[in-house]
């Protein structure tokens, strides 16, 4: 089974983790000012790149903390993990 390196607990099996979708999706500054289309774009529209993708993961069975990971969607390799609030590191796929 693939090991995912939790920034707190170290490498653990993938079964301990929960996937949380794309990272760095900022909440709108003034939600009430958004049109329906803009709101739908914020709620439903996500990137779907072929290559490195910044995602949120939760270490459900361990420290139960959310963190961010850069995963190559072509190979399922985790290129980097970093804690919430830290900037996305430079990665080379």
């Amino acid at each position: 089974m693939q090991l995912i390196p939790c920034p707190w607990c170290g490498p653990r099996e993938e079964a301990e983790f929960h996937y949380g979708g794309q990272a760095h999706v900022a909440y709108p500054e003034d939600p009430s000012a958004l049109t329906d289309e803009e709101w739908a774009r914020y709620v439903f529209f996500r990137e779907n790149p072929s290559g490195p993708f910044a995602e949120r993961w939760s270490h459900n069975a361990g420290c139960r903390r959310w963190f961010n990971a850069v995963r190559d969607t072509r190979t399922h390799d985790l290129l980097a993990v970093y804690r919430v609030g830290e900037p996305m590191p430079e990665v080379t796929a």
Partner: peptide, 10 residues
């Protein structure tokens, strides 16, 4: 002290 799964049990 680790939190993990043992036989799928937390």
């Amino acid at each position: 002290c680790v939190q993990t799964l043992l036989a799928r049990t937390g």
